[in-house]
Amino acid sequence: MIHLRRAQRFILSARPFFQSPSCHLAMLNLFRAAAVVLSFCAAASFGAPQTIALANGEWPPLLGEHLPNHGFGSQIVSRAFALKQIQVNYQFYPWKRALEEARSGRVAGTLLWSSNADRQKDFLISQPVYRSKTMLFFNRSRPIDWQQLRDLKGKNIGVTNGYSYGETFNGLINNRTLLADQANTDEQNFAKLLANRIDAFPCEEIIGMHIIRSEFNPEALQRINISPKPVHEEPMYLLISRRHPNAEQLLHSFNAGLAQMKRNGELDAILKKAFQR
């Protein structure tokens, strides 16, 4: 009873302080400070995008360090992630190192790659980003008509060192059904084609058209044609390193963003620009 009376006397004596203007100002400043802290916390939790690094390479116009948006392929990957509040920073390397940087987990993943059993061991494979088509380019002055690759028997076909043109095509070269004329770059093979030093040259369609436009005079576009049937085609993927701590979440977010781009037409719009001849 004595303690209760003491408490009542303390409250009554303190009442003037809590009712004073200085107390109201102090309490108001306290609430304002708390609101600022909470707003920063909310931004950090919900508003600020997550940032990841991806290993990239040179494959213009789809991929490239100095291309607008780092190329059409990079633009697709960036946009798909951005739709899920994930920002992408690209680190550019030679292709072999790009794959190793991602495999080791030093970056979250890498683009754009085909899928095989070896890569599936170390990476989660996304939904297809782009379907690559290797087409047969030829000089209009020496047209080529073929239905199966074996129909090209005896033709002098340009190939670029280090490139694969699909299992069937590579097999025909290895058993000498097709005559391979090797060059170090795609540009060299297109120069040979324009000079009629080779009969045909297989090259990824978008890449080939970009090379002709950027490396040769406008007349080259009129002199080179493309067979309507692909030599080889395969989907290209984003690879997410299994060593990344959020690998599953990143894959899910990317696939969801890519699906959204398909639904709203953004994906088709980007690829249409890439395919313009």
Rank of each mutant, 00 (worst) to 15 (best):
Met1Gln: 08
Ser13Met: 05
Pro16Ser: 15
Cys23Asn: 12
Cys23Pro: 00
Ala26Asp: 02
Leu28Ala: 15
Leu28Ser: 11
Ala34Met: 15
Ala34Ile: 15
Ala35Ser: 04
Val37His: 08
Leu38Phe: 15
Cys41Gln: 12
Ala44His: 11
Ser45Phe: 08
Phe46Glu: 06
Gly47Ser: 14
Gly47Asn: 11
Ala48Lys: 15
Pro49Phe: 09
Leu54Thr: 03
Gly57Val: 07
Glu65Arg: 12
Pro68Cys: 10
Phe72Ala: 10
Gly73Cys: 06
Val77Lys: 02
Leu83Glu: 03
Gln91Ser: 14
Lys96Ser: 14
Ala102Cys: 14
Arg103Lys: 14
Arg106Ala: 14
Leu112Thr: 08
Ala117Arg: 13
Asp118Met: 08
Val129Thr: 04
Arg131Glu: 05
Arg131Trp: 02
Asp151Ile: 09
Lys155Gly: 00
Gly158Asn: 06
Val159Ser: 02
Tyr163Gly: 05
Ser164Met: 03
Gly171Thr: 11
Leu172Asn: 00
Ile173Lys: 02
Asn174Tyr: 07
Asn174Lys: 14
Asn174Asp: 07
Asp181Ile: 08
Asp186Ser: 03
Gln188Ala: 12
Asn189Arg: 12
Phe190Lys: 09
Asn196Asp: 13
Asn196Met: 11
Arg197Thr: 01
Ile198Lys: 10
Cys203Pro: 00
Gly208Ala: 04
Asn217Val: 00
Leu221Gln: 14
Leu221Ser: 11
Asn225Trp: 12
Ile226Leu: 10
Glu233Ala: 09
Glu233Lys: 04
Met236Val: 01
Ala247Ile: 07
Glu248Arg: 14
Glu248Tyr: 07
Ser253Leu: 05
Ser253Ile: 01
Phe254Arg: 06
Phe254Gly: 07
Asn255Glu: 03
Asn255Leu: 05
Gly257Glu: 11
Leu258Phe: 06
Gly265Pro: 02
Ala269Val: 01
Phe275Pro: 02
Gln276Leu: 05
